[in-house]
Amino acid sequence: MSYLDTTGRIFDIQRYSVHDGFGIRTIVFLKGCLLRCRWCCNPESQEYAIQEMRQSDGKVRIVGQDVTVREVMKTVEQDRMYFRRSGGGLTLSGGESLLQYEFARDLLHAAKDQGFSTAMESMAGVSYDRIEAVLPYLDTYLMDIKHINGAKHREFCGKDNALMLENAWKVASSGQCELVIRTPVIPTFNDTVPEIRAIAEFAARLPGVEQMHILPYHRLGFDKYVGLGREYLMGDVKPPSRELMMELRDEVNKTGLRCMIGG
């Protein structure tokens, strides 16, 4: 069986994405996550199971679809010319792509075979051999580090962060791909200078890491919680101000990293 026949479960494919890697990209969202971050804007990504979600227009949408690499690539290839013009390509996101690491690996492999640039958004919370499997096909690893403090991480995301931080070191040391650290800035969780600064200092020490993205919290996922019949735990928390984001950016820049607000 060809690697193009590997099957996986996705919940969306989004073209003309310009905030997740270089150039114009197509994002494939893989279903299933190992964390349960309270602010998650894609709550339908968390369960691996196929779900029903009621949209704001009242219609019910089936979230989750089993597809082969070949099928996904058919859509991805439709933007070949845009990738060529812009240097873009395929980005995997989720959920946590590595929960379906064979599917992820084969998607990236297929994209590389087509000459597309590849990127993956992931928090690296799986055993390293799974990460190692995808690295040969990966150009840019957009790795989430949400907090340095393990206890706080567990409280807000449902899991400890030790394995993730350890994997960050391993990926960086492998030198096999560009590593970019991404941090969502969440009021009530990590929106202070010392907390962001701690992540930045950790990132700056990782061999070869040059960039960090800080992504302001937004509440655009709210409707989806309603649609899934779930409670929105963030309540009325407001997005961080522009001033705060700029202050945090300057703080990150002090560590020698290049910091971008948004992707």
Partner: peptide, 22 residues
């Protein structure tokens, strides 16, 4: 938001040029 920053402008330019390639 699709045109944010220098990157947004570059991608936007690529979109136009790719439509014109066709």
């Amino acid at each position: 938001s699709a045109l944010e920053g220098e990157k947004g402008l570059n991608d936007f330019e690529s979109l136009i040029r790719t439509f014109f390639d066709q």
